[in-house]
Design a binder for these strands. Structure first.
Lengths: 204, 204
DNA sequence: TAGATTGTTAATCGATTAACAATC
DNA sequence: TAGATTGTTAATCGATTAACAATC
């Protein structure tokens, strides 16, 4: 039922942060005020956001950390693992493999490259595969996410190919604005854009 | 003067996207409608955003791409190079070095690590330095940004140390919520949070 | 000229904050 | 009980959209 309620985008963004706060908490209960102070936001807003959840707080006590975390984990679906492929066998691919995404319920199952000469090389524990076998690998592992790490000039074409072959969501590190069919999920991780934010803030 | 006008956060975020659109444009003029279609937003919003800039469009013609880009480059300050250090000599550091941030006016000038045993090793063309010489390096290169790539358990302490020694902005890849002195700039690049967004969208 | 497009003001929509009764 | 904290409604604030005159 909770899923049927519309969750405002701004609330959704904050729910991710609350989850992070809860992870860092050792106490069994936490108040909206504590959460708000930590994130430097208004405690009213925290309570309002939680009103979209099933979870109820206790007056004078606060929210049950464990219960709240469970509901958020459920909302984000971190308890069922989603399989991810990495496309582009380079330093960025290596970096992604070195990070631990198990807390988000994401597991890397294969690494691909568009260049034939890289096929067979190892990136971490993964032998690089060629895109010819993409569809087979997607089906075999039920891979839904692709981290797109290819060069800018290959970004658009590769992304389309991934969606055609069954990938549901592209985690786009290329910095290129992707134009994909209706329904395809794209989440941009544009590092250059972040640097622009920093540069702008530095000027003040 | 334009700097003195308050720029809404939402407008700022879109200005970065407009810049990206302009980069991909070959024509000398572009209309608010073309930009809006590309980004799947309302053209009225594009014009409203541009009203915060000095740049004026021409009825029946659109906006001068070159002129607009110049103003945005100015706003973000990409024409004067800002020096950046990377802290944490690992795969992520290597990945950042492999990317080209010159378009954002950012240049890496040194790589550091908290572990003495990594000092002297090479990450790309950079010999890894120890944090003892941080202050000297910051002064010598006038480094203002630090990309924080250390492990979670060292994140908070290292970030504070960086700010103490003169770093103005922390580009935080650790996923840890940093608590830093008033005035310190933090921009979070939390990959796990992005995956939560993807996982949530996949459930629909 | 007619028509396309800008720039701006007014109307709407959504998100945040204030206020306060309910509760433990 | 008194006081702290929740949950919710109303008020405010800010951002988006609609409307339209100005312009080339």
């Amino acid at each position: 039922m909770a899923e049927m309620i519309h969750l405002p985008r701004s609330t959704f963004e904050r729910l991710k942060m609350y989850r992070k706060v809860l992870e860092a908490t050792k106490k069994p209960y936490i108040s909206s005020d504590e959460i708000a102070r930590f994130l430097e936001i208004n405690p009213d807003l925290v309570r309002k956001d939680f009103s979209y959840l099933k979870c109820q707080g206790k007056p004078r006590v606060g929210y049950d950390v464990e219960e709240l975390r469970k509901e958020l984990d459920d909302l984000f679906g971190v308890n069922n693992t989603t399989n991810m492929i990495i496309v582009g066998a380079n330093d960025l691919a290596r970096a992604l493999l070195s990070l631990d995404f198990s807390k988000a319920g994401v597991k890397v199952v294969a690494v691909f490259d568009t260049e034939k000469e890289n096929v067979g090389k190892f990136i971490g524990e993964f032998a690089v595969r060629e895109l010819d076998v993409l569809e087979r690998v997607i089906r075999r592992f039920d891979a839904e996410i692709a981290a797109l790490c290819v060069s800018k000039d290959r970004a658009q074409a590769t992304a389309r190919f991934l969606i055609e072959k069954g990938i549901k969501a592209v985690w786009n590190f290329t910095g290129v604005h992707l134009d994909l069919p209706e329904g395809a999920i794209v989440v941009d991780e544009d590092l250059t854009q972040s640097l622009l934010t920093i540069k702008h803030l530095l000027k003040k």
